[in-house]
Write a protein that binds this DNA or RNA. Sequence first.
DNA 1: GCTAACGTTGCACACGTATGCAAGAGGTGG
DNA 2: CCACCTCTTGCATACGTGTGCAACGTTAGC
Lengths: 337, 337
Amino acid sequence: MTDASKRRWVTSLEVAQLAGVSRSAVSRSFTPGASIAEETRWRVLEAAEQLGYRPNAIARSLNTRRSGLIGVVVADVGNPFYARLVEALAIEIQARGRAPLVFVAKEAGATDALLPELLSFQVDGVLVASATLSLRVTQLYTAARTPIVLLDRMADDGEDVSGDISADNVAGAAMVAELFATTGRRRPAFIAGLENTSTSRDRAAGFVAGLARHGLSLAGRDAGQYNYAGGQAAARRLLGARERPDAIFCANDEMALAVLDVARGEFGLSVPEGLSVAGFDNAAPGALAAYNLTTVDQGLERMASEAVGMLEGALDASHPPGRLRLPCRLVGRATTL
Amino acid sequence: MTDASKRRWVTSLEVAQLAGVSRSAVSRSFTPGASIAEETRWRVLEAAEQLGYRPNAIARSLNTRRSGLIGVVVADVGNPFYARLVEALAIEIQARGRAPLVFVAKEAGATDALLPELLSFQVDGVLVASATLSLRVTQLYTAARTPIVLLDRMADDGEDVSGDISADNVAGAAMVAELFATTGRRRPAFIAGLENTSTSRDRAAGFVAGLARHGLSLAGRDAGQYNYAGGQAAARRLLGARERPDAIFCANDEMALAVLDVARGEFGLSVPEGLSVAGFDNAAPGALAAYNLTTVDQGLERMASEAVGMLEGALDASHPPGRLRLPCRLVGRATTL
DNA sequence: GCTAACGTTGCACACGTATGCAAGAGGTGG
DNA sequence: CCACCTCTTGCATACGTGTGCAACGTTAGC
């Protein structure tokens, strides 16, 4: 008993002894496709069951050089879209028999410090949802032959990553422009998120391009850092201007909710008659009865699924970098005509 | 080059050769408090830096029997409170130099299947935020000497866990009862979440007890499964009854938002004059201008911090099980008088 | 009945690090 | 100058599993 109390784990050796075989047989019994007689495997599995044996994933990965761990790095947790993304990724990863190692960067710049640390945990690959990522870090991963896939963000030219995947932000924003134009709006404005992110840039570009197709141009432009307070401030500036816009497209839903609150509460505007408002992300609060916000859905689950799939593709084969732009879906609700 | 291209990792041996020492010296250089001359450590660290060496955490944990991994298991992801909790836990875990292995159970019952799997990853301990947990699983963990800490849920008597931690739901709910009573409400109702969870039971009990202290009793009671649709249905039943309540306390914010939407949109009630509404969790949407929901804050960050601390305490020493009830804070806003 | 082929098994080593132990270096006190 | 102690270092082994290789038993084919 004194001995048993110190032991935390049943090893393959004990199972082997109980089943009357060698450790190799035990190992092979748990390795799909290994050369082992069906009857032997049964005996081993029964012995394992009896002892409560589970293969030690740590020891296994030391040999196979595959940990089964996938790093998930996310910055800007304040943004609820990223929170949902992490969940979707975690579900997708564990559905494929791997385990997600989640790292959260409190500040946007902290991502760079996290990634080398993740490497020491021997992750097989990393999914990064962060607006910023230094070149030095990607080189580190290239040297370690650990694939990186970027989410909700395009890779810059110099970045040596295994792929990037994001919604087709340009097309999604263009759909909003189309909606504004065809419902008679003549003075459309845009509120950007973080100016240096590819998502915000693409949504701006798509919106402007979509407007141009209808002979319209931007009647106002501001930025709100993707959060409520920022959206609030931007809304006050835009709506307080001499020539007030009659439609505002926000780079995400949180800012759009702020616009709605400011428009109704501080400027007494009626939506959508006096002002059309649209957001991006299809976040949960926008669906609430008091807002009923028109927005663009990015297809979060599919994005997560494709991202993990792309990473797995890069795991064994030296896949060429993949780039994927997923189609968006316009969710028309009560804040637009 | 052909050789270097196959090698993914710099090992301690290579660092040792470059620094002109043995592997042991390299190992000790990276072990705080190990017996190593300061000058030797410098030489080793410099060589390591030059080669880009990082200790292999997998190999290390095989020896130390400490993986540095902490399992985080969460069920019911639909509930945004759990999503925020996972994030807070992840941040807290990595702040203490460990890494969170996040597992999400799609259904409430799936937690039981996840936990044994987590064990094979050699997690040092597990944090569980799930309403249900079978006895068999806790026994498994006890056998493996892997501590479990339960979050936002009390341990039942038979459960052999290292501790549980939750908000003082009884006291928090009593504060709402107090608020309703002192603002002249005479017909208070309650909407439970999931009936078999300790959080819902405690909030009900605290609310009823608080009312009793003011000579009041429940004028209505329903359940809404902690989600919007359930809250909607419950609100319709309660508000459609012959003797309509003049105050409703919901076991979480999401149901409270549903109550507000139904009360205003379908029954034309004015809040808080015609109906007081309060929720629980202090979720983000409740703070939006269109709702401005009175609620109870659980102190999420502190809960996460205490939980990880409790788990760490149980890691080395055979700590006695800890039980912690964190104080709640009433957040009075516009949906109550 | 003999040989070749095949499926199955065990041996031995590898994965990369931590650490007890003993030996060596260096210093101090008598 | 010697004995003793402290600090540092390297050697060897352990952690638990995967897998190439060779040996074994069995069967099929002729």
